[in-house]
Design a binder for these strands. Sequence first.
RNA 1: GGAGGCGUCGCCUAGUCUGGUUUAUGGCGCCCGCCUGCUAAGCGGGUUUGGGGCUAAAACCCCAUCGAGGGUUCAAAUCCCUCCGCCUCCGCCA
Length: 436
Amino acid sequence: MIDIRVLRDNPDLVRASQRARGDDEGLVDQILAADEARRSSLGEFEALRSKQKSVSKNVGAVMGRLAKAKKTGDGDLTAMEADAETARTEASTLGARVKELEQAADDQGATFERLLRKVGNVILDGVPSGGEDDFTVLEHVGEPTTFDFEPLDHLALGEKLGAIDMERGAKVGGARFYFLTGVGARLELAMLNMAVAQAVEYGFTPMITPTLVKPEIMDGTGYLDAHEDVYHLPTDDLYLVGTSEVALAGYHKDEIIDLTAGPRRYAGWSTCYRREAGSHGKDTRGIIRVHQFQKVEMFVYCKPEDAVDEHQRLLGWEREMLAKMELPYRIIDTAAGDLGGSAARKFDCEAWVPTQERYRELTSTSNCTTYQARRLGTRYRTESGKTDTVATLNGTLATTRWIVAILENHQQADGSVRVPKALQPFLGLEVLEPLA
RNA sequence: GGAGGCGUCGCCUAGUCUGGUUUAUGGCGCCCGCCUGCUAAGCGGGUUUGGGGCUAAAACCCCAUCGAGGGUUCAAAUCCCUCCGCCUCCGCCA
């Protein structure tokens, strides 16, 4: 949710952002009107409530005097009874009106919030306008891998190595499920362990997180807006997370956290679940696009003014991981329309996949500024002692999909796969050899 | 799954039975000031959060907030209902 003050003070900024995203600009004026309506309605209600309270309080005072008089036998009991009754009636009349005004104020407030929540995060300077294909390429790192033999794709390699079993995955879980077997399982664990080791080295707190979350947590992160891609368990009204970002964003919900020692950095390890609705027929081969995978994810809470720098740091840590895996890749600045509601800017690192002859996303780092945190009520104490909403950011350190790039880029003519140097200590192997 | 207990403004805690004169008590912690050669002690004051109004910004005023949401009532921390969480015991299972 964006800050209503930003929208009030600088509606043009929000209009421009909406335009870049290809979203409705008219929402801005609707919200301004709803904000006006809500505030005046609230003022009316509160004024009358205040009056009703004071009248009602007077009843209490009269009742107190009456009780005392009854004890001592002094004073005009009948007159006092009458006073109390008059006040009671007046308060009762006011009470009915107050109830109406309260309902009206609640309705206006709900309308306002519903509209405000429709607005995506205000994009940052430099984010390209447009949709999925309108990204800017920021940098190429390394050269696309070339071979003096016909390279195999990751699934062919995975089967040769006894690393990936899609057929049995489909038997057990259906399409887009798989088993990682033998060196495949070891490879994934080694990679994720390496990611955690790097995170720890840079001061992150490793976290193993819930993968089922309550609706308000899923909603707070903004993922419920794209709910068709989220698994839901109706019996328990719980959602399966698509990333540990969800749980880590919920971790400090409704808290005022201490940021005086710097950003809070967490590295979440979790299984991730995605329905992949709307991608039927896309990436049906292998483990590029699956319903369930594992990921180590960085998640940061920091002061809003530090978010842009922190975003660069997250990108840097992703680059370090990709370098250790010895993969060629490019970095893109995702276009506004492809950001998702919560992000104000998103950088993806896409690794070269030789058999597809194109770059595929391996990491994604988003600066959500205060958008998620405002919904989740996560704040910090400023120098002046006030509370203010924190900024949240996230970025990928490793996922199951990386196996695709590792196998394909490091394959050798005999069907074996060279293990990147940095990964060797975690895997305990220098080469993955095909099964006999 | 069954029975019982509990949830109060950072932490602890009074208040709940018996609704009202309560701006929700007191202590600890923290902040500011006084005192002090320094520190401690002592003394005085402040210290939930969100929203609205007035402001250049404050001060200030108002509304809400006693786990959450409803209800009863002129009036709810207090009475009623639903839900959530924690604890104890029993049962079942790993």
